[in-house]
């Protein structure tokens, strides 16, 4: 659903008052309002998944528990990578707002690469856990862990696709409306996904079960 929502954000801004700033009752951009609302809504989605995990993380009749599979150093590194992708993303937005679209494209590409590194790391981590005997159906811990981190991973992946799509559309100059705002919207989504990982990293990995 995020993608569809973003698709409209990217486009409904046009020169005739449907979505532009300055012509709205509050003077705020329709697109940004919609994005913030969407992110507010996502809080309840991830809240539900995190709570389910918290409830179930200690329940593993079969298979390993969290302490037997988690590797804090490994996950710390991949968390760091995602954290830094937020830095590169905000730099992309800053450049876009200064109209340096080329630099913005570059930073967005870097962001996407960092994001992909994170997702790759997550896939590797999953296979590692699977080797240690934690499958999706093994235990309540397994099901709720993979569901939570999997949902987050899908969000990162969607973010990567959006970044690459915007870079591609900027290249052929097919971005309708305000380019800086489109980049800012993708940025908001990206930072949110990062912020969710800040919660997951601490709650899921660092608190011993």
């Amino acid at each position: 659903m995020s993608t569809a929502a973003v698709a409209e954000h990217g486009t409904s801004h046009d020169d005739h008052g449907h979505g532009g700033h300055g012509h709205t009752s509050t003077g705020l951009s329709n697109n940004k309002l919609a994005m913030w609302l969407f992110l507010g809504s996502e809080c309840l989605l991830f809240g539900g998944l995190i709570s389910t995990y918290m409830l179930y993380r200690g329940r593993h009749v079969k298979g390993p528990g969290p302490d037997q599979v988690f590797s804090i150093p490994y996950t710390s590194v991949s968390s760091f990578v995602l954290l830094m992708s937020s830095l590169t993303m905000v730099l992309a937005v800053a450049e876009a707002q200064k109209k340096n679209i080329d630099k913005a494209k570059l930073w967005m590409t870097v962001t996407a690469v960092l994001g992909a590194t994170f997702v790759g790391g997550q896939i590797f981590e999953f296979t590692e856990f699977y080797r240690k005997g934690l499958g999706y159906t093994t235990s309540l811990f397994g099901s709720s862990f993979y569901t939570l981190t999997g949902f987050h991973g899908v969000h990162v992946t969607v973010g990567i696709i959006m970044l690459m799509a915007v870079v591609g559309m900027l290249r052929v100059d097919k971005v309708p409306g305000d380019k800086a705002e489109v980049i800012e919207l993708v940025g908001l989504y990206w930072h949110f996904v990062d912020v969710v990982w800040i919660l997951i990293f601490t709650l899921v990995y660092l608190i011993p079960a």
């Binding site: 389910t52 179930y56 329940r59 009749v61 079969k62 999706y136 159906t137 093994t138 235990s139 309540l140 397994g142 099901s143 709720s144 569901t147």
Partner: peptide
């Protein structure tokens, strides 16, 4: 959670497993 339980064997509602 329900779909994943039904489709992929997620344990969420499996009382045997302590759900």
């Amino acid at each position: 959670l329900l779909s994943f339980s039904r489709g992929f064997g997620g344990a969420f509602f499996d009382v045997k497993q302590g759900a």
